[in-house]
Design a protein around this nucleic acid. Structure first.
Lengths: 110, 110
DNA sequence: CCTATGTATTCATCTATCCGAATACATGAG
DNA sequence: CTCATGTATTCGGATAGATGAATACATAGG
């Protein structure tokens, strides 16, 4: 109780922040990779062919936005999705995008 | 036919571009406003209390990402959502966000 | 053509983001 | 404690994004 609730504007700001976190190609790859299975940072970096610090920084951003969760595993850290629904949302967006592209090119011979 | 199809990476890039377009508070307000009803640029600017050039620039970005469509109405231009599904997606994201916040604060007395 | 209204664009500036490289920090083993 | 491994952070520079102010452009009316 007595918890400060975010105002409409604050919620809108947080909302934008989450969307912004999704607005990077590498972070999308990370989210889809973690959807397949949780992974160590180094494993993720190797799988996605990016330097470890790069993966770590992107994971930090995703963590701040509550899109992924970290869990210690000895000296390593396992990251996993915080919300499976996010993948559904991303899939929907991607489908909308594909439809949009199809509509564009489709107009040519419509 | 013979239309160049985007590769996986290109699609991922476009996907990120669309998400990035959603990652701005004012653009979220614009999308939600246009979901209520299509509007002229000036009307939108007035309703959302932002300068007309600001609204116009944001609309340009949303147009480039195929999130809104423009339609001339005399000297004015009516903007409307290109995809109602985008609002569903945004609503889902917002709900996920609310759940996440509730989980955070809820842990206090869990 | 000239004017009025509405929209888009340019410019300069400021801020934020992204990255590679280097380095600091944390954990577990010996 | 020391070392090895794995992760996070800092620094510097390059790039992109957002904004106010000014202005160009487009359309309709007279």
């Amino acid at each position: 109780m007595c918890v400060e609730q975010p105002s409409i504007d604050e919620l809108n700001l947080l909302h934008a922040g989450v969307c912004q976190a999704l607005g990077d190609p590498k972070r999308l790859l990370i989210l889809y990779a973690l959807n397949e299975r949780p992974r160590h940072v180094s494993q993720l970096a190797a799988d996605l062919d990016m330097p470890q610090p790069t993966a770590s920084r992107h994971l930090q951003i995703l963590r701040e936005r509550h899109l992924v969760l970290a869990q210690r595993d000895g000296a390593a850290v396992v990251y996993h999705l915080a919300e499976p629904r996010v993948i559904e949302v991303l899939d929907t967006m991607r489908q909308i995008l594909r439809d949009s592209l199809a509509r564009q090119t489709g107009v040519v011979n419509a």
